[in-house]
Design a protein around this nucleic acid. Structure first.
Length: 486
DNA sequence: TGAAATGTTGGGGCG
DNA sequence: ACGCCCCAACATTTC
């Protein structure tokens, strides 16, 4: 492009809006800043797989989310440019090609993204661009919240109290008008090859979800309207659709936590019952911030025990047990139901995540990292901070973690939270014919009950891979190794 | 955001 | 009538 000496004779130089995990138009501070004053925009998403480690379900989600964002931008007459490769060089080339003078994005908090973004910011500033980043993903960024002594929070409850003292800014409206910048040749979404082909396992995901900003908005509205009031009572019952199911939308920033915060507050205004429920829900939303806070301050959270005493834990290489767990064939119905829900829909109810994770870690003694990596690949809401912080929470190796000796009994949990076995019947249909009493522990069902339900243990449904009571003793003994070094 | 083991209490059966 | 034992039911401790 030839530089004109007369700036007024050509359109204003464009700004680059670099979309990452903020795939929305509303409450998008970077987009708003980039579009300010009618600046021509170059909207771009870069598939940068050096930095973005994507699981299978996440790839599926991203495909549809990008399609939705592209369509939404098109409505404003602005294309979404797609490129793949290393983000730095891609952005430099784009700026050179278009004469862009500004670059805006919303911040990410994963260690690899932080390192990349810092490099890009320095390099682009060096080239004379204005580079600005914003918060679109958190209620409160990690450097904005600290204990009285200035330390990062390591315990959730004080973190939550401190967060409630903060003023959570109101969400921003979508920019009124977007102006397209110069035309640039991009790639077709299909070339990203984000969708599964052989085999196409995404049928269940398609039924369960509507990725994109509109889907996120509708999901939140339905939750607030239909489920919020009974959230505290029903959130632990996996057979009830009582949770928000916003996690994948939040991960890709199709909706921001501040939008969720303000809409929830609006929903519970002047209704004491609703206020209590709303607060319970927002407390869960705050866990998301807490996890990001932990990952930011302890970037090795993904791979290392947060409590190093757990380095001494004698994990077991149980290939067979791990495979049974992945496949939903452990012989413990509540665990298997969860693992199959995950495989089928890319999501698992939170209560069941805890039960399934506890089973892998404590009953099978398999390292939390292996479970976390499986979740990473199968969860549509796979999120580095949430996933790894939560697995370490269950393992007992994390910050403010559940003590290791708190071991879930998968049968009691099942009886307590799925009393009628509705969740089990949905996801483990071969057990559907068993009565409520035996469905949580089919191996103890009398011969007659099994026969009536058409089940033979070991043929139609597996025998338990481990005996929970033996496993519990084994786990407590293994835990001694951690106690000895701490 | 557990569960099992152990301890305590009190009502009722029964010699 | 009384003391003894049994054992729910609940509380506390331990892992």
């Amino acid at each position: 492009m030839v530089k004109s000496p007369d700036a007024a004779a050509r359109p204003a130089s464009p700004a680059i809006m670099w979309f990452r995990q903020d795939l929305r138009l509303k409450d998008n501070p970077a987009l708003r800043a980039a579009a300010h004053g009618g600046t021509p925009l170059l909207c771009i998403f870069i598939l940068d797989e050096e930095v973005m480690r994507l699981g299978g379900a996440s790839r599926w989600w991203l495909h549809h989310s990008l399609a939705a964002l592209g369509a939404a931008l098109e409505k404003h007459g602005v294309p979404l440019l797609l490129k793949r490769g290393s983000a730095g060089p891609v952005l430099e080339e784009l700026a050179a090609e278009t004469g862009a003078r500004a670059l805006y994005w919303n911040r990410c908090y994963e260690p690899a993204a932080i390192a990349r973004d810092k490099k890009i910011k320095d390099a682009m500033k060096e080239k004379g661009l204005e580079v600005k980043s914003f918060n679109a993903a958190l209620l409160c960024e990690p450097w904005e919240i600290a204990t009285k002594t200035g330390e990062p929070f390591k315990v959730f409850t004080p973190f939550w109290k401190a967060l409630q003292q903060k003023t959570i800014p109101a969400p921003l409206p979508a920019p009124k008008e977007l102006v397209a910048g110069p035309k640039v040749e991009g790639e077709a979404l299909e070339t990203f090859a984000l969708l599964p082909s052989k085999p196409d396992w995404a049928g269940g995901l398609k039924e369960a979800w509507q990725p994109g900003e509109e889907g996120a908005r509708a999901r939140l509205a339905a939750f607030l309207d239909e489920d919020l009031r009974e959230y505290p009572a029903k959130r632990d019952l996996p057979a009830q659709p009582a949770t928000s199911r916003l996690s994948p939308h939040l991960h890709w920033g199709e909706i921001g936590p501040r939008q969720v915060w303000s809409a929830t507050e609006a929903a519970f205004a002047s209704d004491a019952m609703q206020t209590k429920s709303g607060t319970a829900f927002l407390r869960e939303l705050a866990w998301r911030d807490f996890s990001h806070n932990l990952l930011y301050h302890w970037p090795s959270l993904e791979s290392e025990n947060w409590k190093s005493a757990f380095d001494a834990f004698p994990w077991v290489k149980d290939e067979k047990g791990f495979k049974a767990w992945c496949a939903g064939k452990t012989g413990y119905p509540i665990v298997d139901a969860g693992m199959r829900e995950l495989w089928h829909t890319g999501w698992m109810h939170n209560r069941v995540r805890m039960i399934a994770a506890s089973f892998l870690i404590k009953d099978l003694l398999v390292h939390w990292k292996e479970g976390a990596d499986w979740f990473w690949d199968t969860l549509a809401d796979a999120d580095l901070a949430n996933n790894y912080a939560s697995w370490q929470w269950v393992a007992g190796s994390g910050a403010d973690a559940s003590p290791y000796f708190r071991i879930f009994n998968p049968v009691l949990q099942s009886e307590k939270f799925d009393p009628k076995g509705a969740y089990i019947r949905k996801w483990v249909p071969e057990l559907a014919g068993l009565d409520d009493k035996h469905i949580h522990r089919p191996w103890e069902a009398p011969e007659a009950a099994l026969e009536k339900a058409g089940i033979k243990i070991g043929r139609d449904y597996p025998a338990p891979v481990v005996d929970h009571f033996e496993a519990r003793d084994r786990a407590l003994e293994a835990y001694q190794a951690v106690k000895r070094v701490s």
